[in-house]
């Protein structure tokens, strides 16, 4: 499929940089109040011209329970919706493809690696999200050839891979250090127990 010319990349990355705090707030989960991710996604898709967004999927964006990772997924979903709500898209983007992008694995994969805030604060991550969005909707940034756009996206992704590797190494180093500290502490506890076992305990009023 050949791609059409999209908006200026900077127009969309600036939009992400200016994401309002409301869109980064905690999502509604169970009885806990928060941003209704499903309502936001439904409004955005209808704004793009989709008559009947997938209701079951939208309802699933307000889960009964959510751990930290699931909450981050919902927050990344909100940021992606904020991007799709840019005035450039209505009338140009295919709303069904927009729903497919949100509905597919792309957002979940991004959320598994990166917290939502980073897609707002970090230059590379903003660019990555914009390029992924445009690619999913069949556009290339204004002024770029399709090959250029693809190369740049891969480059951004390789940066991401490196970041993940570095982060993983950091986590492993921290875990190793923590294990060593725990071993040392356990050794001290064993020694203390041996020493104290030979001493008198405190008077206790009752038997057990």
């Amino acid at each position: 499929m050949s791609s059409s010319e999209g908006p200026l990349l900077q127009q969309l990355t600036r939009r992400l940089a200016e994401t309002p705090a409301d869109m980064l707030a905690e999502p509604a989960v169970g009885n806990k109040a928060g941003v209704e991710t499903g309502s936001v996604a439904g409004d955005v898709l209808r704004g793009l011209g989709l008559l009947n967004p997938d209701a079951r999927w939208l309802a699933g964006l307000h889960p009964e329970k959510a751990d930290k990772n699931q909450r981050n997924f919902l927050r990344v979903m909100l940021v992606a919706n904020w991007l799709l709500a840019d005035p450039w898209f209505p009338g140009k983007a295919n709303p069904a493809e927009a729903q497919n992008w949100l509905y597919g694995s792309s957002i979940a994969e991004l959320a598994a690696l990166t917290t939502a805030d980073v897609f707002v604060k970090d230059d590379d991550r903003r660019e990555e999200l914009v390029r992924l969005c445009l690619k999913a909707l069949g556009f290339v940034p204004q002024g770029e050839k399709e090959v250029q756009a693809q190369d740049r996206l891969e480059s951004i992704s390789s940066v991401e891979r490196q970041r993940v590797v570095a982060a993983s190494r950091k986590i492993q180093d921290a875990a190793r250090k923590r294990r060593a500290e725990e071993e040392e502490r356990a050794r001290k506890v064993r020694e203390e127990m041996q020493r104290k076992a030979a001493e008198a305990a405190a008077a206790k009023g009752t038997r057990e």
């Binding site: 725990e182 502490r185 356990a186 506890v189 064993r190 203390e192 127990m193 104290k196 001493e199 305990a201």
Partner: peptide, 15 residues
């Protein structure tokens, strides 16, 4: 020994 929390004061331990 793995049940003893990091912040437990070992000097107070009795057995």
């Amino acid at each position: 020994e793995w049940l003893v929390p990091d912040d437990a004061p070992l000097e107070r331990m009795i057995i």
